[in-house]
Design a protein around this nucleic acid. Sequence first.
DNA 1: ACGACAATGCAAAAGATTATCATTTGTTTG
DNA 2: CAAACAAATGATAATCTTTTGCATTGTCGT
Lengths: 141, 141
Amino acid sequence: MDSQFLKKVGLKVTLPRIKILEILESAGTARHMSAEDVYKALLEHGDDVGLATVYRVLTQFEQAGILTRHHFEGGQSVFEMDEGKHHDHILCTKCGRVDEFVDPTIEERQKAIADKFGYTMTDHSLYIYGVCKECRKKEKA
Amino acid sequence: MDSQFLKKVGLKVTLPRIKILEILESAGTARHMSAEDVYKALLEHGDDVGLATVYRVLTQFEQAGILTRHHFEGGQSVFEMDEGKHHDHILCTKCGRVDEFVDPTIEERQKAIADKFGYTMTDHSLYIYGVCKECRKKEKA
DNA sequence: ACGACAATGCAAAAGATTATCATTTGTTTG
DNA sequence: CAAACAAATGATAATCTTTTGCATTGTCGT
Ligand SMILES: [Mn+2]
Ligand SMILES: [Mn+2]
Ligand SMILES: [Zn+2]
Ligand SMILES: [Zn+2]
């Protein structure tokens, strides 16, 4: 949260890092942001940070465990504050809406599958794609 | 399989398309190939096909339902012959090994989650990442 | 305040994929 | 079978996202 946090993970407390943290923390519903999203948000706030720095800092935050990186369909990486609790995502392919969920049964089954194939599981990614309720309404109209 | 298949889906029977089909069909264990992989395989066979054509044809085959496209971690799209039966993947992050599985319980739970959130599910992708047995052995040594 | 070293910004580079367009090839027709 | 037309190809340029090089600036412990 505060900048002492950065020191703790071995990163110097710089203006770009503080600003980027602020953006991510105050993102609200738009928790899932690409580097470009973060960059634009910074500019809108009047903070002039280079795009390359945004990329660098996001990667550092990811390695420090502050952020989680996702690979939604469509190319760019998206990041979100790591709130400690793992979750997966369901996305609307029409409007880009994102919802989060955790399903203990699925989590458990994944581990079982890894075991069965002799893998030590390090990570997994599950994305469900579909059309949300609002977008279905619009389509009918 | 044969080239009449191409006609059926509205694609002209051209040399590049036939060659690319052959590569994909005879891929064996290396079923999952990137455009670059296919391109290199063609060159090794002495078939001079342009990289742009490989990209175009793979996309066309995907749209025709002959191929399935996946987004494994690491940037490039990978393709595989569509054998009709859906499956998910578990990958070794050390050696690139890929295994395939189907878990009815997970499939079912995904549908339930989509319902719960009011989505009409159109697709989903599940990748489990880990270290395979062979690679664990090597690490210990 | 000083100095060592990390961090930044800009521009160039890289990697993957798509678009452009002149030329070639496949398919249809007579 | 050859002409005619449209579709497909290949070389290259362009795009998009992300990374890198490097000179300059900023941070932090002393
Ligand atoms: Mn999330
Ligand atoms: Mn597969
Ligand atoms: Zn929607
Ligand atoms: Zn392995």
